[in-house]
């Protein structure tokens, strides 16, 4: 199925102020793959994602989505194929009610009302938010907002899902719900995140960006096992791979235990870890 290949070739992007955000980035993602794009702040992740749906135009290089090369003519088709879930759901949910928001895409596609209603119901059902349909987005919790944001994209029946920092700002329970949801999708998934534990759970392949270049591209476990690479790219191992500082004292923790402050430096991670990890 070469149908939904994402192929990025020698992509370069220079911002108007002269900053080179992407330097000759190339990769190929096949149908059904789940790929993480990771990197420190300013590595170029967001810039890359914004190229995939044609919001930004490449300074040099090409992008192919399926059979189409990204260009002005194919833009509409590509935006239908690639569904982008943005980081802040408050940016994504701009209509008065959840229903209107999920219907926004399908209505722009020019579908008839009955089809739109069905699409909306299906999409909300999939994210478990059907009962929220008549609520205004500002009365939703963070986790609900995120799931509805995913539904706004699902209702357009995309073949490729692009998610920018999907777990940012979610509490542990909402994060877990979202992960469970995403795991069930059979779309091609492209995810950027600083949440490497999520990457470990969700993506079999990882691309590491550093200062606009691809530093590594391979199986996630292999990349997370490469300490030198991670250090060079200002990344840290996911907590699940660091060993537990509480119950396995034999293991070397990055911080010497006696000097640890009362609140763990990675409070959230420790919590999330919750002592239910499997050794």
């Amino acid at each position: 199925m070469s149908h939904h290949i994402v192929e990025v070739n020698q992509l370069r992007h220079v911002y108007p102020d002269g900053t080179m955000a992407l330097r000759d980035v190339s990769f190929r993602i096949h149908h059904g793959e789940s790929v993480a794009i990771i990197g420190a702040n300013g590595a170029g992740k967001s810039t890359l994602l914004l190229h995939l749906n044609g919001y930004l135009t490449a300074t040099a290089g090409t992008i192919r989505i399926g059979d189409h090369q990204l260009s002005r003519e194919t833009l509409a088709e590509i935006r239908r194929t690639v569904g982008t879930v943005f980081q802040d759901p408050d940016d994504q949910l701009f209509m008065p009610t959840v229903f209107d928001d999920v219907a926004f895409g399908p209505l722009n596609q020019g579908l008839d009302v009955a089809t739109v209603e069905r699409r909306v119901a299906d999409a909300l059902e999939r994210v478990g938010a059907l009962e929220l349909r008549n609520k205004p987005p500002y009365h939703l919790s963070g986790g609900e907002k995120k799931r509805v944001a995913v539904a706004t994209v699902l209702s357009m029946l995309p073949e490729i899902l692009v998610l920018d920092e999907p777990t940012a700002g979610l509490d542990p329970r909402a994060r877990r719900q979202l992960l469970a949801l995403l795991r069930d999708f059979h779309h091609t998934r492209i995810v950027t995140s600083h949440d490497l534990d999520m990457v470990l759970e969700l993506c079999e392949r990882t691309i590491v960006l550093h200062e606009g270049t691809v530093m590594a591209d391979g199986p996630t476990l292999e990349i997370f096992g490469n300490d030198a690479l991670l250090a060079a790219c200002h990344l840290e191992k996911p907590f699940a791979m660091q060993g537990c500082p509480v119950c396995s004292p034999g293991r070397q923790h990055p911080l010497p235990l006696p000097q640890r402050p009362l609140v763990a430096p990675h409070g959230d991670g420790l919590h999330d870890h919750d002592h239910h990890h499997d050794h």
Binding site: R79, F86, D88, F104, V153
Partner: peptide, 19 residues
């Protein structure tokens, strides 16, 4: 600008349709 981006990503072409 981000909202506009999110709108474009979902096929916005100048017209907001509501039910």
């Amino acid at each position: 600008e981000r909202v506009h981006m999110a709108m474009l990503a979902r096929g916005f072409a100048g017209e907001v349709h509501t039910r």
